[in-house]
Amino acid sequence: MQKQPIIQIKNLKKQIGKTTIIHGISLDLYPGEVFGFLGPNGAGKTTTIRMMVGLMNITEGEVLINGYSVEKNFEKAIAYVGGIIENPEMYKYLTGYDNLIHYSRMIPKIKIERIEEIVKLVGLEKRIHEKVKTYSLGMRQRLGLAQALLHSPSVLILDEPTNGLDPAGIREIRTYIRKLAVEENITVFVSSHLLSEMQLMCDRIGIIHHGKLISVETVKNMLEDNQHLSVNFTVSPLKEALSYVKKTNPKIKAEIIDHRLIIYTSEDQITTFAKLFVNNGFSLTGIHGEQKSLEEKFIQITGGDLHV
């Protein structure tokens, strides 16, 4: 990615009272990519997003959008952004159309035709002149998208856009997000706590846990990466085997579970380890490999210590 980043997050921190909620997140987003911001409940997704759009004060660090600081140059920076923060809360007693008129008045130099265009784009033509309180959640979500796209932003920031939608609705949003990224070169920053959903629409996924960004990887790499194979060696003596493995391969992740030595490695390494044990006098009585799904990896990273 040699392109200029459209969003730069630099060592972003948030402290409320004495607790630090976000511990220094750094991240660059590029034009046309769909970035998944994945984390369990309470990880700090919404807090990070609120700081990115200027709803919350930044304790430390900065967010630049197209080079403009959200903190110091808010109006310029936010002009590139469209967003839905949590639920798409609209004025329920106004019609969908009035809601869009409302937001359009806050954008300099917008043409009235753009409203018609966007209504068609999200497929709300039939109901746009009805009050929002009569809308279903799916329709509200679409109206939410319409207000976010009204000013043709370069970045779309969506906080759990599929929350509460049925499978068809989720799929629709997903297709839509991909389309925006591919056809309009819009950068989409989308948060979720479901990996399965992210995997299908994102180019890259960043995992946030306890306010820290603990991994950023392309979905392609994640899928190809066979580091996720966990191999069970039934070997003895167990403890000596573990320390031997760690000594010879300092980078490898290995642990003892249920009287077995688990080594997280790739397929082609299984023989190497088997040879290592046999050649060094350990007794090896069984090998069992297991491919981990991304979901498991995610849970392994985040779920194991949810209570911490």
Partner: peptide
Amino acid sequence: GTIKLLLIRP
């Protein structure tokens, strides 16, 4: 909750 959409405008 409409404040969130109101304040993310230029």
